[in-house]
Amino acid sequence: MSEAGFFTTRLDEAVGWARKFSIFQYPFVTACCGMEYMATACSHYDVDRFGAGLPRFSPRQADVLFVVGTISHKMAPVLKRIYDQMAEPKWVVAFGVCTCTGGFYDNYATVMGIDTIIPVDVYIPGCPPRPEYVLDGLMKLQVKIQEHGVSGARSAPESRPAELVR
């Protein structure tokens, strides 16, 4: 291993470590899941322990987009716009089964999973997910952030398997 490689990896690790404990999230709260989001964020479950306690209400200052709740087709352009406004590096968490797959609202009004519009890093299913699930998802996200590195491009989100695309 070359000298430079050694330093880069160390630097990567340090930056990753710093990043994963200073998550500035943008909560894009639309629906019922927002209640559980609130419960997670408040003192009882306390996401601050994971360094994610400070929501930023401007997408330009946030690194992680929490999409919380059903996204309807009317809302979809707004979500996309907010995602585009965020600066790199950015991550997206799909909170609740509605954002993961559309849930049981398989009808004319709703988007069947936000990964059809924007890439998603962590899926937290559940309707709504319990706060414990959310914390688990957050830890998974931290692992992902840690692996991200300084220079490396973000790992492209996997596209949906063909058989799931109708």
Partner: peptide, 11 residues
Amino acid sequence: IGFLHRGFEKM
């Protein structure tokens, strides 16, 4: 309004 219309009545 209508950003959270999820078609309850149709479902």
